[in-house]
Amino acid sequence: MDFSVIINELPLYFEGLLLTAQLVPFSLILGFLAAIPVAIMRLSRNPLVNYPAFAFTYFFRGTPLLVQLFLLYAGVGQLDGYSALTKEFDFLKGAYFFALLAFFFNTTAYTAEIFRGAMAETPFGEIEAAKACGMSKWMILRRITIPSALRRALPAYSNEVIFMLHGSALASTITLVDLTGAARIVQSRYYAPFEAFITAGVFYFVLTFLLVWAFRLIEKHFNKHLNRREETVIEVVT
């Protein structure tokens, strides 16, 4: 293996890193915000509210991300009137918007299901206490159900974030030069698949490590009240 070719191409990898570091956080932030209302809709007993949310999450969890990406990018590109529309809206021309859209839909669907599960498991005592204090339905949702559910959902959500990072590699299939796209260019330029993809792998590895570390801090911060204090543990033992 000859990693000297990689040194010359490092700027390309950093260019790719920049794109990955845009696409993933953007889609995750948007997806997080959209997932909360979708999760609430999924908990509704009214079928008119529940079913659209169910259909959405069912579709986006039921099909591969690659299929969704191709449907949005290649599919929409073949529709009549698409090229006329690109003249009005320049952002529709590139692949960036479609990648962002596909990632956003996908992560919204998964995150909504994670949140729905966490909300459904809210201890009844918490809600009962809130009712006893005279809180309205919406206030309970805002002050008790959502914050409590988000805390409980953190470990599962951190998984979704890591999956999204790795799923973003698919952006390279629609001409975008993300980390994987950079690796594919290097691979085809030097016929050095090992060197090219190992380098991309190292970048993803570092990013994943940073995410895991960040989520540990976040969990520690938000779940402070659940951690047993040192003294308590000793008391139990003695």
Binding site: A74, G77, Q78, T86, K93, T175, V177, G181
Partner: peptide, 16 residues
């Protein structure tokens, strides 16, 4: 950059 020439033609007709 495209993986195949066919994909490049598709994006050409889509005006991309």
């Amino acid at each position: 950059r495209y993986g195949t020439q066919d994909e490049a033609y598709l994006d050409m007709t889509a005006g991309r």
